[in-house]
Amino acid sequence: MTARETPESIVVVLGTRPEIIKFAPVIRECLARDVPFTLVHTGQHYSRELDRVFFEQLDLPAPDVHLDVGSDSHGRQTAAMLEGIEDVLVDVEPDVVLVQGDTNSTLAGALAAAKLNVDVGHVEAGLRSFDREMPEETNRVVVDHVAEYLFTPTEETRLYLEREGVAGQVVVTGNTVVDAVYQYADVAAEKSTVLDDLELSPGEFCLLTAHRAENVDHPDRFRSLLAGVAQFADLTGHEVVYPIHPRAQSRLDEFGVDVPDEIRVIDPLDFLDFLRLESTAALAFTDSGGVQEECCILGTPCVTLRYTTERPETVYVGANCLAGLDPADVVAAGSLMLGKQPDWTIPFGDGRAAERILDALTEVETDTDTAAATVTPTETTATETLQ
């Protein structure tokens, strides 16, 4: 990659709590380097109070613009974001718009920028589940093909983009979630009281997250998912704690689905409390890509309640198992992963992804071969990382 002038203005677009977490190291790096930026929150996750807590815990500045889009159909939500983001870009005239991941906020930010001939930087580019039934898969593919900068977390994701012939410049940076976990895991252990509050002991409970549309928007799938986790809990004697996403709660109410007694439903958690539960759970059941990554980094075995994943590296290293939704398969996968020692190599980098992203955006010249080599440590395991 050739050297570039430092951007006079960057716009960061985010809209969900996972995006706040994964953008936190990038925002902190901008502050450290005095790189000016405008932070736009679309409001895709519409609990503004909980979002505010995330910004405070991560020690981030409040958003400069909050669009308050909220929940709606994919088309209407994305359209409202496009309109609001376009207004910001016309006013700010940035050099680069940074988006992260695969949400509707990501898609809207990238499209608004591309239509105005503003460079797009895609953080966590190249992920593929190869399941076009997932709206997130469409978002990933579209954003990668309009982006000027594609910041991939692994060599495998770089190869996916190479095969697709993307026009933008690809840099293997590692994943900013590693940066975030490294920066905040000790803070969570020190400050979070969630274990005492919920009367939980480390290693004696399991964690559940389920929020994806392909699971919770279909009552039979949602029931099957919950039944499998409950049967596992009954078999092993491990209580399951489920911090429920507002979308999932609304679907339970709409469908009249009862959560089995073996699963304790609690309110959504702030970042530090959730990180603490992830790091001390015996096992995590999830349909979240981010949770798959975080558990891999933290050394917590994971069972993914889907038939595909855009984080296959977690499976390759032995940190994760794809179970699908059939209750018997969920129980079998949970039994396989429970008690697994976290001796796997972390495939998502060395905690310096944000540095590499800013290097690529500024006049610092980045050696992509060196980056690719250094972001996949071969000797660091999940057990060693947080000791």
Rank of each mutant, 00 (worst) to 15 (best):
Q292E: 14
E293W: 04
D287F: 04
G289C: 14
L272T: 00
D267Y: 11
L283P: 08
S288I: 11
A282R: 01
D273S: 01
Q292Y: 03
S279F: 03
T280V: 12
L272Y: 00
R264G: 15
R264Y: 08
L272V: 01
I266E: 15
D273R: 00
D267F: 01
Q292S: 11
P301L: 06
L277V: 14
T280F: 02
L283Q: 00
F271E: 07
S279K: 10
D267I: 07
A284M: 13
T300I: 05
S288L: 07
V303M: 08
P268M: 05
L305E: 10
E293P: 14
E278L: 06
L298Y: 04
D273E: 15
G290Y: 06
V291W: 02
A282W: 00
L283Y: 02
L298Q: 04
Y307E: 15
S288Y: 05
V291L: 13
A282Y: 00
F271C: 12
G289A: 15
Y307C: 14
V291I: 15
L305N: 05
I297R: 01
V291S: 04
D270M: 01
R306K: 08
L277F: 05
T280D: 10
E278F: 02
A284W: 02
L305I: 14
R264A: 15
F285M: 03
E293V: 14
C296N: 08
E293R: 11
A281Y: 02
F285Q: 03
D273H: 00
L305M: 12
P268E: 09
S279P: 07
F274H: 06
R306S: 12
E278D: 07
D287V: 04
R306M: 11
L298T: 06
T286W: 03
T300C: 06
L305A: 10
S288C: 12
G289M: 10
F285C: 04
A282E: 09
R264H: 11
V291T: 15
L269V: 08
T286H: 08
G289W: 01
L275P: 06
P268I: 06
D273M: 02
T304P: 07
F274L: 12
R276D: 11
Y307R: 15
F285L: 02
V265F: 05
V291E: 11
R264T: 15
R264L: 14
C296D: 11
